[in-house]
Design a protein around this nucleic acid. Structure first.
Lengths: 163, 163
DNA sequence: GTCAGTGCAAACTTTTTGCAACTAC
DNA sequence: GTAGTTGCAAAAAGTTTGCACTGAC
């Protein structure tokens, strides 16, 4: 998903719609948290989100409010909860039609992509004794930045050895 | 994967091989923990594993040892760490060539399956700017037991209504 | 005005750490 | 004998809860 200004606006819209639709209130905290989610690059823990808000955005919220609203955002499909490197992380991701996440094991950045073929294939799986309701695919690897950084580091080591 | 006696023996073998190959020691605790993993049905938390051991198997281990060894088991590919219902759970699963897990959202049981087509498809993905190293697929749904239980429950409600 | 939402601090759960004692090799 | 391992208890990290107060509707 592109993380442009309009994507952020659309997310805001989506949140508003979700809140109204579920009898929940549009509080400034909720929109500030959403903004912080957009300002963080890659994945984050509730604590990191809190830090982003208080230190960089200068918006004070309580820890409990962050936790509460991450659950709401998750149910609204605005963020996803992932297991990354052994601990739970959240990532921005509110495209319902995205079925696959590319997870960079270097920097933790998560990009959602779509692949109709794989989606079809999974829906066509003939699973005896199992009634599917959904699925989630995570592809692990290195993004271009981290991949290049690794190459540079390797080259340096190589050069040192040859001296 | 079938959870027969022989599967357990093979897992034990695999653990032994892994430990030897990595300069780690074969302690009684390690094998007792592996046994407990087999005795638990479905997924478990470190705490549940500890309870299983101390209460049912009557084998005392420290919490720290359970945590340490779950990490080793994970690296050895004997167990998998999953995000289930918002919290981290482990499941037995040591088939390296299994690329997909069926996760029952009713009872938490996890079954690994293979699908060469999907595996090929993912490896063939043309991902610009991303160097894949691995992937993980989780298919959520209801196993036959839970599915039937749900049906029965629904029928009961239906019957009550019609009275 | 009402009640959902918030802040705060305390409680609780989960995981990690440091160190002495132990034991597999 | 020598490390790798364990148990234990304390600390740290992560999450939930209860309650009084606030503010969105």
């Amino acid at each position: 998903m592109e993380k442009s200004e309009s994507a952020q606006n659309r997310a805001k819209q989506a949140l508003e719609t979700y809140l109204h639709g579920h009898g929940l209130r549009c509080t400034p905290e909720r929109f500030a948290i959403l903004e912080a989610v957009f300002n963080i690059d890659g994945n984050f823990s509730p604590d990191m989100l809190l830090e982003e808000m208080t230190e960089r955005q200068n918006f004070r919220v309580s820890r409990a409010t962050v936790y509460n609203n991450l659950i709401i955002f998750e149910q609204a499909g605005l963020v996803k909860r992932l297991l990354l490197g052994g601990s739970i992380r959240f990532v921005l991701g509110w495209h319902e039609n995205c079925n696959m996440s590319l997870v960079c094991t270097g920097c933790g950045k998560v990009t959602d992509i779509q692949d109709r073929k794989i989606d079809t294939q999974i829906h066509d799986l003939k699973m005896r004794r199992f009634q599917m309701t959904g699925y989630s695919i995570q592809v692990f690897g290195l993004c271009s930045k981290c991949s290049q950084a690794l190459k540079r580091r390797m080259k340096k080591i190589e050069n040192k050895r040859n001296k």
